[in-house]
């Protein structure tokens, strides 16, 4: 018993101050891409050709980016001959729809809140069932980690529950393999109305690196309607947490936060 108490004292208090304070993120974190149009030579398609997931195309005025397809890898930034593309530290990436993830120049942080009725229902208590459908266990682990003392998801009234019948919605990861289509549909059907669906990670949003594979359906929206998209490969745990809180209307503005 004594050694348990001693260990407890040594381990200390570890829950982050977020959302009252900004989270501690790795210095080299690859957040949303930014285009520096002055440096972007016209006629150059190096980034488009380097991107593994067709997350970049060229429109008048320069590259157009799709954060829903982006793997946040370094293929485009290292292919760019003039340093016109760079990763920012922007980790607040969630949006209500896939379309909102497409941008030129700089990613704009979204409000991403549910409508008032759903916020009223779920704002103080949200139970989610997680379904991995072809996920690589990257997104799954970074969802799981929200339950640790560092993030302490429970303090926001959000909980991952064991049964879809106890849930208010699904959090889906993976490109939705054909072999998981039926199980995903059945799990969705088992969640009582009204319900929400969160697509977490590039695979669940767009198929990620598996987009176009005949073995997968290319994301959650192929099977169920999606209410929130959380980009990343995998999204940083704070990106996921930020998305959940934004959806519930608990982080409203770009800079201010409220509990």
């Amino acid at each position: 018993m004594l050694d348990i108490l001693l260990a407890r004292a040594k381990q200390g208090h570890r829950t982050g101050a977020y959302p009252d304070a900004q989270p501690t993120l790795p210095e080299r974190l690859r957040g949303a891409l930014r285009v520096l149009p002055d440096r972007c030579p016209s006629g150059c398609r190096a980034c488009v050709e380097a991107c593994p997931t067709a997350a970049i195309d060229i429109v008048p005025g320069g590259p157009r980016l799709d954060a829903g397809r982006c793997l946040f890898c370094t293929d485009c930034t290292s292919a760019c001959p003039s340093g016109a593309l760079e990763h920012t530290q922007e980790y607040r990436l969630s949006a209500r729809s896939r379309e909102e993830l497409v941008y030129t120049r700089e990613y704009e942080v979204k409000k991403a809140a549910l409508d008032e009725r759903l916020r009223k229902l779920f704002g103080r208590s949200l139970k989610l069932r997680q379904v991995s459908a072809g996920g690589c266990n990257g997104c799954e682990l970074d969802v799981n980690v929200l339950g640790t003392i560092v993030f302490d998801l429970g303090r926001f009234g959000i909980q991952v529950v064991a049964s879809p019948r106890h849930a208010d919605g699904l959090l889906i990861t993976g490109p939705v393999s054909k072999n998981m289509e039926l199980a995903l549909q059945k799990t969705y059907d088992a969640v009582p109305d009204p319900k929400i669906v969160i697509a977490c990670g590039a695979c669940a949003i767009s198929g990620g690196p598996y987009a176009g594979h005949p073995e997968v359906l290319g994301g959650a929206s192929a099977v169920v309607p999606v209410d929130l998209v959380i980009p990343g490969c995998p999204p940083h745990p704070y990106t996921i947490l930020d998305g959940l809180l934004r959806m519930l209307g608990r982080i409203e503005e770009r800079t201010t936060t409220k509990r």
């Binding site: 593994p52 393999s177 998981m180 690196p209 598996y210 594979h213």
Partner: peptide, 17 residues
Amino acid sequence: YQHRGVERAIVEDAGKR
């Protein structure tokens, strides 16, 4: 359930993915 066709795709892919 998690089959995504990785081995097939590694061979068929031109190299980017």
